[in-house]
Design a protein around this nucleic acid. Structure first.
Lengths: 136, 136
DNA sequence: CTGCCTGCAAAGAATTTGCATGCGC
DNA sequence: GCGCATGCAAATTCTTTGCAGGCAG
């Protein structure tokens, strides 16, 4: 019986839980919350605990395999770790990835020049109505 | 004794709490959290309750006098309600407002044209190191 | 074996809500 | 006087942590 400190799992060991969570995140396009990951992965591993989901998501983020973004409703996870943005439709609630554009790069470069700051990362939260919802 | 439902205060009535909270937010440049607003305003109104702060901040946001942005550490409030962005220095933690630039407008226009979506709002979360911290 | 990882439950942290009281009108 | 906003405390929600046992290596 020794001191414990149940932090995020390291990358050393595999477990079917870890693999299932990572696999689900790969296929999930909707930037799921931890709750949604739990419900989805429980279809394959019914005994899965929420704490395990959080611990593994934390590890995935720490190791650069996923990213975590804050929404008003809570944290959302995503396997895209390269620079990109999010578009949220205020009608249907869908969250889509948006690639950076050349105009955006120029904008950031101008910002760096004028302020003297060094920019490491830009995440834009774009809100509006998606094409599908506009048609209705 | 009647049914109650303590929601955000309406705009009809004034209270010194409400005014003090709004006034502080006007002068606060650091995009304070609810906790920080509480501590600051308590210097003038020691009995101020945290729930009152939350309720009034909610009302200010609802009425378009303030905006709420999610940071990994929690919600932050700001009196700027026109389009703008946030730059967070990862060294000193300061949060600064960033005005939209012409390049950014072009970027969003290109996004709307290519996707067919209608964009209502864009908030960029820019992370990096500010000029002051870079000099050290 | 040995210790990392899991599941469950309890602890924390942030935010919201219920109620009785008091202030603004 | 009436009713809305406040203050306090309890309730919620989201996330993290403590343990004991099981599985991977």
């Amino acid at each position: 019986v020794r001191a414990t400190k149940t932090a995020a799992p390291s990358t050393r060991r595999s477990s079917k839980q870890r693999e299932a969570i990572a696999a689900y995140l790969e296929t999930a396009a909707h930037h799921p919350t931890a709750e949604q990951v739990l419900r989805a992965v429980r279809k394959r591993i019914p005994a899965l605990g929420l704490a395990t989901v959080y611990r593994n998501l934390e590890a995935l983020v720490r190791d650069g395999h996923a990213s975590r973004t804050m929404h008003p409703e809570g944290a959302r996870y995503d396997t895209r770790v390269d620079p990109h943005h999010h578009f949220t439709c205020s009608v249907c609630g869908i969250v889509e990835n948006v690639d950076p554009g050349p105009q955006e790069t120029k904008w950031i470069q101008a910002f760096q020049r004028s302020t003297g700051a060094a920019v490491h990362r830009v995440v834009a939260d774009i809100r509006g109505v998606c094409a599908d919802c506009r048609r209705r």
